[in-house]
Design a protein around this nucleic acid. Structure first.
Lengths: 235, 235
DNA sequence: TTGTTTGTCGTCATCTCGACGATAAAGGAG
DNA sequence: CTCCTTTATCGTCGAGATGACGACAAACAA
């Protein structure tokens, strides 16, 4: 902030501040990220993270939430939204100095972004494919940081429920972990862990049959936000 | 960032971007933070985190490192420096829109900032006192976030060594944990944990007598960066 | 020499986890 | 209806980590 010496608003370099979003969801058991196709230079035709400029009287969080609803075409902000980190290399945008505050959003399975809306040109891309293909600006780095944050937070928070609809089964939750971590988990040990963590799951008393197999108990997210001890990735 | 539609550099609100620093160190076994006294309005006379504007051709990391050496008056950046998060409420600075990228720095016991240099007016303040007294702008919040980050990272990284000089004893390292967490740890269990973690400590083969008691083995920081499993705060 | 202080090693009960066997409850094939 | 497959859930066992704490080692002080 705002150091003491010699303040004059016109003396200081002004930069543009944007928010970029890493929006993750699960589609058909696959972890996907929302990408847009750029219509202009630089990086015309390349895929990029959705984002936009922060408005003059808007909080950073509010700007991220606004962009999220604009790009997904939904009414409310679904799931979870948190600040990731900021990126401000002088070279990251050839046009001018742009500092971008990246946000991470996690959402339950969302519909394909509607064409015709602001969300036109946006699409869900499996993260393996998105990480492989080139992305505009430094968005590959931002995506990688967002993925790492998501993977890490599943270990020690109840954030996985943000990928689930309001009611879900233990198998649904396990599918989240398996998709985000890209690794199968033992159903029995996973069940023991999540049902044994106080406050993580709230039993609705109902069950749901999904075709084959024994019906599963239906839960809602409980009040707990942290996992102690954590659920580790390594194995 | 950098959404597609209608780009024109002059259309967009420009804001000032600053870096603010949460610099932590240990002095006499007490966790302290570097604060400056503001010489002008707003918040004249109040204490604030050190910081300043990001220069036009400077990386955010470089700006943080530059401010750090300017405010501490040291040659090199000691210890550890990482981005914390960004703060951009429209109301946080009454003069204009300022987005601040906060950084967290951890350093071994540093000398009192020299008067007469840029660091004049800066001083080390015990964190309990700093958290209690009022701070300029939203710096109380930034300090709280920085402290929480530091406390959390001691759990699962080898970051505590950043508070130590190049050579240190297990007791020195334990003193770091106790100061940052504000809680005593069992010397025997702590010793077992840190000496049992491969790559965390590199034995110099020497010992050091600090007055009373049996001399302690002197270590350097090893190549390990993470603690698996973590060293938890709760107990 | 004796006591005090600090560092280091061991012991033990407890907790958690990973591996994996066993049972429960559904649908489908015959 | 009966057997088989599939998924959900419960139990058991051994390995590893942890917290509480006893014991010994190696320095200084009185």
């Amino acid at each position: 902030m705002t150091t003491g010496s010699g303040y004059d608003p016109d003396e200081y370099p002004r930069v543009a501040v944007t928010v970029d979003l890493v929006v993750l969801t699960l589609r058909d058991g696959e972890l996907c990220v929302l990408l847009v196709e750029r219509g202009e230079e630089p990086w015309r035709g390349a895929r990029a993270l959705p984002g936009g400029f922060v408005r003059p009287d808007e909080t950073l969080d509010a700007a991220a939430a606004r962009e999220l609803v604009e790009e997904t075409g939904l009414r409310d902000v679904p799931g979870h939204l948190e600040q990731l980190r900021s990126y401000g290399d002088p070279e990251r945008d050839p046009r001018m100095r742009v500092v971008s505050v990246a946000y991470l959003a996690l959402a339950p399975d969302l519909p394909e972004p509607a064409a015709g809306s602001d969300a036109a040109g946006a699409s869900w891309v499996p993260v393996d494919q998105a990480s492989a293909g080139p992305l505009a600006f430094d968005h590959a780095r931002i995506l990688a940081d967002g993925l790492e944050r998501a993977r890490a937070k599943l270990e020690y928070t109840s954030l996985a429920t943000a990928f689930c609809p309001p009611e879900f089964t233990v198998s649904d939750l396990r599918a989240v972990y398996e998709a985000v971590w890209g690794r199968p988990l033992d159903p029995r040990n996973f069940h023991r862990k999540v049902t044994g963590t106080p406050g993580l799951l709230a039993d609705t008393g109902r069950t749901r049959a999904e075709g084959r197999g024994r019906p599963a108990t239906v839960y809602r997210a409980g009040p707990a936000t942290g996992l102690h001890p954590p659920l580790t990735r390594d194995g």
